[in-house]
Amino acid sequence: MVESKNIFEIKNFSIWYGNFQAVKDINLSIKSNRITAIIGPSGCGKSTLLRALNRMNDLIISSRATGQMLFHDVDIYDKDTDVIELRRRVGMVFQKPNPFPSSVYENVAYGPKLRGIKKKSILDGIVEQALIKADLWKEVKDKLNDSGLSLSGGQMQRLCIARSLAQEPEVILFDEPTSALDPISTAHIENLLQELQKTVTIVIVTHNMQQAARISHYTAFMYIGELIEFGDTNTIFVNPVNKLTEEYITGRFG
């Protein structure tokens, strides 16, 4: 593997919900153009950490962050960070497929339109490219005007990926993107992620350890808000240093 630079540097980073510390003093780097998986049992703070990367946690009124979260060496929790621009550059795909109740086309064109692109010919191109990249174009090219909600679960999730791709992000965060899908759709999306990784940095939270082992280059294991172990996926799964990690990946708890 070619050396890759750090796109995110997380330093002594914590997140609090009121008096509850959900993420505890984490240090972690995320390499660009790689897939980084965050695993751990329910409630370990992995989703919270993921949502910190594009400041989606801001939506929870009582939440606050301490420490540093550097994106291209700029602290995104700085007062003058443009959160809107951050979220354009760091997109997100959620656990439950959540297309808007509008057409397939409108779903994908949503991001570009927000940025003021109005010309139909340009939008058409962006929509087509995003759908091709999300491996959905062949299935929907004749029904771009159908409702996004009329697609199957797996298609909806790929539509959400296309919607995110249309805003030309550098990073896409995946929050358990396949946990609501059947095995075939899951495999489809896993293949897609490996394809996307060539152009976009991917951070994925998953409950499914096999998934993390299959697709990621790096794996972070979290437990009760703390980062227990982080490293090469191979190392983590074959030779974990920490006993907790070993117990978790061998299925002794979780």
Binding site: N54, M56, L59, I84, E85, R87, R88, G91, M92, F94, K96, N98, P99, F100, P101, Y110, G111, L114, R115, C160, R163, S164, Q167
Partner: peptide
């Protein structure tokens, strides 16, 4: 989840409400 999706696309709160 619709609001989340919109915000994650880089929409402002008002854009999310309006669109």
């Amino acid at each position: 989840s619709f609001r989340e999706a919109s915000l994650a696309c880089g929409a402002t709160k008002w854009q999310t409400i309006r669109k």
